[in-house]
Design a protein around this nucleic acid. Structure first.
Lengths: 361, 361
DNA sequence: TTGTAAGCGTTATCAG
DNA sequence: CTGATAACGCTTACAA
């Protein structure tokens, strides 16, 4: 038997209404009854029951977070940002992961119904329309990195296209013209946009799109390792590898090291996301900064605004796009360290970690 | 107004009780009314309200997770394990982070009261007794990696002491006798145990404990970078660095690379945790495998058992310790690549990532 | 300023 | 097999 508001009321010789008023400061209460109630509540270690409160108030002070996965630094960063913003607004987080398809998302939503005031959904492999389908009607929701399909769900994403385009342009400017690309999963919206950006940059430069330079991964380190292996196995291997996320870039570098192929001298390798560990790698990873935690924060802010009805009209398909930035570190080499058959001397000055040059675009 | 069980009842011309029975299969219902109810429920997209259900059932089918932080791969791995186990048992997760002291933990608990059936708390910097203090009386709780203090709270932890001891012994066996140690935060229970293990190994080997070889970090990459800088600044720098977690080891390696100090030739560097990225680093990181996700799974399993009363007697201070394993990779070098003034040839065969030798202890 | 009582949406106990 | 109805613990009109 846990202690309830009735116990407090009884011991303080007041009604439960008064106890509630004291605890929520929701109406004036005489100083001494107030003090008496607080005294009793404290001594009893009374804590109001959240479910009862949510039921009565019709709001839960909690947000639901639905993620495809929980593996790697990307998701912990995202969740960190979400948690920060939610905590600032005194909201709890109901988290559920391993939901890749609309069905899975649907059941996750069902489990959350009545326990959360709004939903944050990251589902890069699911069409936004399909997500909207499984949503309770008019339920406040923000989609993170959803596919660009028009729908009634508010969406926030990063500039995958622009970031990838800028990165490929940078590699080309360094003299690396044969670029291997390790793509993400076939239906991943982020991955596809990054791919499109890469191709756009190639085409602008008048370069062909060589199918041999294209392999598909799944955003895991291991698939990056495999991707690099495949790319090195073709007749005329590339001078650079652009992995569609940092984890795959890390895997690729790992493979190259095992093969004694020096990075960046013989092979430039770049990634996407700028996960926290990227700057500490050897060589430090040139990548596209996404501001993962900020993405989570902004998504949460958007959702909280919607809950407060400071929101955009419900059935307008709002879509925010956060900018990305090129982060040039060691793994792409400098113009002078162009690819050569001989391992170059590793004396190229490397950037200290606290002075990472950032190139906006 | 969202659709409730009453709406379903009305449209199916039955009582709410029957609807509930159908939806929960909690009592026999005639096949055709059953079908009718399901039909209506589906067409109305009815989803039961979680708060109401929790309130009535007196169980929430949710677990609370309280973490000190959400930064880095350690926490995403831990959460992944917890989520897996919870999901298998159809439990949701209410997550709250950034709670380092007993007060913060207390307020997090308050926010969860009535919404969760049990608590998973990771609070390496808080004494178990202090945690017990802020806990509702007899609330099912499992402490992850708590300090060893005797208390009434069930605790699960990893063999920090043994793992660190084994690692230091390994470094010594490689001929690295001067070992710099980058410790964790002053009150972090895990960090302290790892420190104790390291010292125990040194003493067994008859080696002195040199205060100059000891620096304090905070488990972040940056503090590892700083720690390495400090250790390299002393008069007679070490031949190896043992960082109390992988993140700090990564930071240390990053510093050494910037100074052109080759790892492992001139400096062996090892860590603790075996976060997923460790095997992909350059050089791949020798570390102590903790089985982070497994830790989360087991903690959750313990808690779920307690909820089912398959539990150990409530006020017995049960304490499980998971074993750790040495994972020998590239960053510690081999016996032949003992420290020397000349950078050794980097031709030492490196392990492929799929054949990592593991040494139990 | 305080108390009474009607919900909030389910589940569970009784009768029937 | 089915229907009333009393909880579950709290908030919030409405009165007093």
């Amino acid at each position: 038997m846990t202690v309830t508001i009735k116990d407090v009321a009884r011991l303080a010789s007041v009604s439960v209404a008064t106890v509630s008023r004291v605890l929520n400061s929701s109406a004036p209460v005489s100083p001494d009854t107030r003090e008496r109630v607080l005294q009793v509540a404290r001594s009893l270690h009374f804590v109001p029951n959240g479910s009862a409160r949510s039921l009565s108030r019709r709001r839960a002070a909690a947000l639901g977070v639905i993620l495809p996965d929980l593996y790697g630094e990307f998701f912990s960063e995202l969740l960190r940002g979400i948690d920060q913003a939610a905590q600032r607004a005194s909201h709890s987080l109901l988290v559920s992961s391993s939901h890749h398809d609309a069905r899975g998302i649907g059941s996750a939503i069902r489990a959350m119904r009545g326990r959360v005031d709004g939903l944050l959904i990251m589902a890069p492999e699911v069409d936004a329309a399909d997500v909207a389908e499984v949503l309770p009607a008019d339920f406040p929701t923000v989609l993170i990195n959803g596919a660009a399909a028009s729908s009634s769900v508010q969406t926030i994403t990063v500039d995958n296209f622009g970031g990838a385009q800028a990165m490929t342009e940078h590699l080309l400017s360094l003299g690396r013209r044969r670029i291997g690309f390790i793509a993400g999963a076939a239906h991943n919206a982020d991955a596809l946009e990054r791919e499109r950006g890469h191709h756009a940059a190639l085409q602008s430069a008048g370069l062909p799109i060589d199918p041999e330079l294209y392999v598909r991964g799944d955003f895991s380190e291991e698939s990056g390792w495999q991707g690099a292996a495949t790319l090195m196995g073709i007749l005329s291997p590339p001078a650079a590898i652009f992995a569609a996320n940092d984890a795959m870039a890390i895997g690729a570098i790992s493979y190259l090291r095992e093969q004694d192929i020096t990075v960046p001298e013989r092979m430039a390798v770049v990634g996407f996301d700028d996960i926290p560990v990227a700057r500490y790698l050897n060589p430090s990873l040139t990548t596209v900064r996404v501001g993962i935690a900020a993405l989570g924060q902004q998504a949460t802010a958007l959702l909280l605004d919607a809950l407060d009805n400071r929101a955009p009209p419900t059935n307008v398909a709002s879509r925010s796009v956060l900018p990305t930035h090129l982060v040039i570190r060691g793994s792409c080499g400098s113009p002078t360290s162009a690819p050569s058959r001989q391992p170059a001397a590793s004396s190229t000055a490397r950037n200290g970690f606290d002075e990472t040059p950032i190139v906006s675009h």
